[in-house]
Design a protein around this nucleic acid. Structure first.
Lengths: 244, 244
DNA sequence: TTATTATTGTAACATATTGTTACAATAATA
DNA sequence: TATTATTGTAACAATATGTTACAATAATAA
């Protein structure tokens, strides 16, 4: 929700943005064997929300989503999937926004454009956790990773949006082979398996997993990784995209 | 695009609708071994378009989609899947709408609300062809079925929307078992197979198809159907939903 | 009545995929 | 040099899917 806009943009209807339309992003990362989601926290009020934004008047919808994610992660070339447009009339509760605005010294009128109904076109993004620099801004105190298993209470229907994002991610896991976007360039087979297990929420058998992924022909074995552990060193793998 | 609205609604910005937002529906039917799509044809100009509409100020997005499909098919309890929000800036070409408005005696100003940019949240609907009564209205001459294999040139990006709808339908075919919504209550196994083959665009082997579908435990064998053909009579089947 | 014909329902087998157990090959440490 | 934990993969089992084959009709023709 609202950020990066100059004062007159928060005050006047839209001002260069499409009215009634927002983009929200569920940005997934993977670290310490945990799926993480990047969340924003509003100044003073402490209310949590998904990173989001609005669509500029001449901006493609998908570009708006990419911009929103770029602004919060300092990344470019982001893997994004649009998964649902949330449009129930009562999804938009003006109370938290009123609280936030009041706490920040703006006394909003009831017909303020930010208090109107919004439809949110939602995307999930898959990013390399190690490359992200979480970026707060003037409006948000916080921009930080939270374990998916331990998400704080969120504004409006943002918890539902995260749940639906996870469902979409699970469905895309086999079809679109999206998991590699959550890994660093090189990774071991067991790291990859842990990621799959975390996303799917269930354990997988190691030999079957390894056989399956190698048979896809999309992994290149790079080198060995000496972990320092008292055991055989695992191979490192790299994802081979079609254009390489 | 625009329909059912009283004159002032076409003239003033939105008037009870959310601005900049539309809902479009790819309504699939199945008849004569062909997948069909319900298309609208504008009066006088002959321009083809998908059935669509706008979202009322206090209406749920999904309800708007259901209303749009109901208005064109005279059905209720429609199987709907939201599959994508189309939001490229240049998807909205004002020319065909200008042509249509001019042909219908409205001289539009350049900032007329209908000529502005729209984002289309698109749904596909699966309906029983035999139960549909195609409903034109004051704005549209035509509301009729067209073979998916033989769609006329459509307004704006509506051809792309149909292509994406078919992709989504194919993906949902196995996961969500949606095909039954395109069939009458009772059907033979070969009719069902033909539907699957038409949607997937490839032939399936009969014994494997029958074995697979029976093993799902979602079909109830009802009676035999004497086709009048010189061969064994096939069984009729009915889909068993969970709540029956 | 009795072949003939086209299609249906399903068994039977072949092949491919996935689930499971087992074990040799390490890399560090004791 | 033994011990330990983990890796890579072979080998077998169980399922699922692909394919061939054939008996069981329901109409028509002989």
């Amino acid at each position: 929700m609202y950020r990066e806009q100059r004062k007159e943009e928060t005050e006047t209807a839209g001002h260069g943005f499409m009215p009634g339309l927002a983009v929200d992003a569920v940005i997934f990362g993977f670290h310490d064997q945990q799926l993480k989601v990047l969340l924003m926290q509003y100044k003073k009020t402490g209310i949590f929300a998904l990173p989001g934004g609005f669509i500029r008047e001449k901006e493609n919808l998908n570009d708006a989503a990419e911009r929103v994610v770029s602004e919060r992660t300092a990344l470019k070339d982001i893997y994004l999937e649009q998964f649902y447009a949330f449009g129930d009339y009562d999804r938009y509760d003006p109370k938290p926004l009123k609280t936030i605005m009041t706490a920040n010294g703006v006394i909003p009128e009831d017909d303020h454009w930010l208090l109107q109904r919004f439809i949110s076109v939602s995307y999930y993004a898959l990013v390399d956790f190690t490359k992200v620099v979480p970026m707060p801004d003037r409006i948000f105190d916080g921009c930080a990773w939270y374990d998916l298993a331990n998400i704080p209470e969120l504004m409006q229907d943002h918890s539902l949006i995260i749940r639906k994002a996870l469902t979409a991610l699970r469905a895309d896991l086999d079809n679109k082979l999206v998991a590699f976007n959550l890994m660093p360039e090189e990774f071991t087979m067991s790291e990859l398996q842990t990621l799959y297990e975390t996303i799917l929420g269930k354990n997988l058998l190691r030999p079957a997993f390894q056989r399956k992924l190698l048979s896809l022909g999309i992994l290149e074995r790079v080198a060995k990784k000496w972990t320092g552990g008292a055991h055989k060193a695992p191979y490192l793998y790299r994802f081979i995209s079609e254009n390489n």
